[in-house]
Amino acid sequence: MAQVNLLHAINSALDIAMAENERTVCFGEDVGHFGGVFRATSGLQEKYGKARCFNSPLVEQGIIGFANGLAAQGTVAIAEIQFADYIFPAFDQIVNEAAKFRYRTGNEFNVGKLTIRSPYGGGIAGGLYHSQSPEAYFAHTPGLKVVIPRNPYQAKGLLLASIRDDNPVIFFEPKRLYRASVGEVPEEDYQLPLGKAEVVQTGTDITLLAWGAQMEIIEKAAQMASNEGISCEVVDLRTILPWDIETITNSVMKTGRLLISQEAPLTAGFASEIAATIQSECFLHLESPIARVCGLDTPYPLALEKEYVSDHLKVYEAIKKTVNF
């Protein structure tokens, strides 16, 4: 196994998907010869031709509308939205069309072969429009799957599963980790299951739950807590929709405490959905209120980014407060 970064792992997944099925296409803004602004599609046009890996005009609603049509036709459509911040022009095509395609047609038609890839998340001095984490907007939409990996191994396995899943999937890639996260990734084909959380570290005092780039934050906080004798169970949700209620419930039944951390703003973020569900499922097992460590309810600021983000220190403080409740 080779040590590669997250971008390389994604590129490898795309390469495998395009090689295994000649009806697989990748497209989006600057995706073609240039290989994407982050180089995730690097080399694919040279290898598979301009008809299968190409630049689109600069129009997000067009990219996803076009992808919906391709997928309905039976083509495996992997569309890239350059930043998750710019997915909103395509919100109608995603929410009203892609998500409802199979249901409204009575399964006469579907866009199961659609995957939307998009870099998300902050920590790169990206300000308001290169930092957002919009997963909660899509979590409110039946018919979609929403997947977020935390490292190169997860990225390749989850992306291949997303491409092959027979439902439209939004795959958010933590851009802060594109080059920063390096790990062992098999060169061959493998898949990781959608809809399954992963217990990354077992513990007994509190369950820490996050996804994507926020995983390394809570792992760091868990390390700090363990130095104080607090045993944290660290869980990666991996799939936002439909999410793995069972794994989280089992963990909280054991630890009696839950802390959820996300980059996105607090109010109506996905942590709220998890907190409400776990409160309902584990009421008699909870020994303290469920803690949410999230971004502030403000747009994502530039100069005050450090203060805004839910960093490991904020998570660490919340762990101590919850355990000592």
Binding site: V25, A51, N68, G69, Q73, G74, A77, N96, E108, F109
Partner: peptide, 29 residues
């Protein structure tokens, strides 16, 4: 599906970029 007539949705004009994509898929094949 049998008659190759895509199911109607109320959302106006959403079928227009979809038609472009559908046709591109036909061409690729």
């Amino acid at each position: 599906k049998a008659l190759n007539c895509m199911t109607v949705s109320s959302t106006l004009a959403t079928q227009i970029p979809q038609a472009a994509g559908y046709a591109y898929g036909q061409k690729l094949q």
